[in-house]
Design a binder for these strands. Structure first.
Lengths: 224, 224
DNA sequence: CGCGATGTAGATGTGCACAACATGGAATCG
DNA sequence: CGATTCCATGTTGTGCACATCTACATCGCG
């Protein structure tokens, strides 16, 4: 039995964790939203106890905050901390190309081609949710270019912590979604081209540049 | 009421978390040790439920691992992951001097002077546990030299995750404790000197160099 | 004697009832 | 009328009993 019917405690935990993390990072639950332990436990078909363990983990990852007698809320991110995080992510992005880089294997090449197709499949009026998912999938795929496990874990952590704030700006219309999709498509194309030449460091630098530019666009969008 | 009598749920959690983390990182619980939920709950005067929340958090930080029906164990770190972590910590150490550096304030100066005294107070046969505590306190103090909160959080995380492995080598006698203390005293002196000149970046580079060298000494100690 | 099935002890995981706490509104007193 | 107190309500936190699972010893069979 390798199908979904085998539901060990660990599997259930991972499943609920991944689902809730995605909902938070893809803005199904906007920052500030209150999550009902009772409702979520009922949805997943478990009692509050195991669900609370998942919420506690998400709190440790900085995505939730529980307050006794009040509720469990999706966290927001202060602008100053957001800026600090992006400055850090710039450096870490470059590190992924410098620390234990690994050339893409066949599986990663296949995934990258599929992601490229998805990026090119968006029309004039892109679906925000699908765009958000694509960005996340691309990010996670590019993370496989480094074999440095701690570095990957940290990049993931920072990404999950802050991407939704950037997404919020896009979805709020302060950034033009169609042009954002276009810029992102070019980014993926550039990175894939660098990878085809075998230049992992350049691929990382391109990603770094795009992180920097997208943050800059958001900053201008917020102030404007 | 600001004294210890005010024991809110959050305070109890933080207290238990800090105590257990220190015990793990200072090798009171060696890697591989099984922790008894029942015994710890009794020690802290709570039931298993809130204690399990603490253990779950420590598991998320990579310090523990719970296995259903078997037990909760202090994690060990594979040599390869340890090497990756140290390579990453080198880069992050330099980043602390480059990203949002802040000059020491009066409180930090006072702490540094006290730490310097503690480093100079060790004799020919240093107490391992006191040395371990000093190293941790110095590390946490130097972290206050950057205002970049995410960077500090990440450095802390990696430090707590791996220091005990290095400590284990020292305590196992593969490294000469007295000479390690001497090297560490010099490191603190060098860093404080750089800080007195106001050169934060150099201070970070010194720290980086010492991390590199101490890891190299451990590598040679393990293979020899 | 070898070896597999089985039972048992002890661990973590789960469900549920209740305690502790914060919030908001109604009742009450000045 | 306003401020204050009190309480009703809903939430997270805790304690406890039980379910589930694993490792190990023990028994029984070939």
């Amino acid at each position: 039995m390798t199908d979904a019917a085998t539901a060990s405690a660990r599997d259930r935990f991972d499943r609920m964790h991944a689902i809730l993390r995605n909902r938070i990072c893809l803005l199904d639950y906007a920052p500030g939203t209150r999550l009902s332990e009772e409702a979520l436990a009922a949805e997943f078909g478990v009692s509050r106890t195991p669900l609370r363990r998942v919420l506690s983990r998400l709190e440790g990852e900085g995505l939730l905050q529980s307050v006794h007698g009040v509720g469990t809320f999706v966290t927001d991110v202060e602008v100053e901390e957001l800026a600090q995080t992006y400055r850090l992510r710039l450096e870490l992005a470059e590190l992924t190309g410098r620390l234990d880089p690994v050339a893409p294997d066949a599986a990663l090449w296949a995934d990258l081609r599929a992601l490229l197709d998805r990026a090119r499949g968006f029309g004039a009026d892109p679906d925000p949710r699908a765009y958000a998912e694509l960005i996340m999938d691309v990010f996670l795929a590019l993370l496989r270019l480094t074999a440095n496990e701690p570095l990957r874990e940290i990049c993931e952590r920072l990404y999950f912590r802050t991407t939704r704030i950037w997404l919020k700006s896009v979805f709020a219309g302060r950034l033009d979604l169609a042009s954002e999709v276009d810029v992102f498509r070019r980014e993926v194309e550039d990175i894939v081209m660098a990878l085809q030449v075998g230049d992992l460091h350049s691929a990382a630098l391109i990603q770094r540049a795009h992180i920097s530019m997208s943050f800059e666009r958001m900053r201008r969008g917020l102030s404007g």
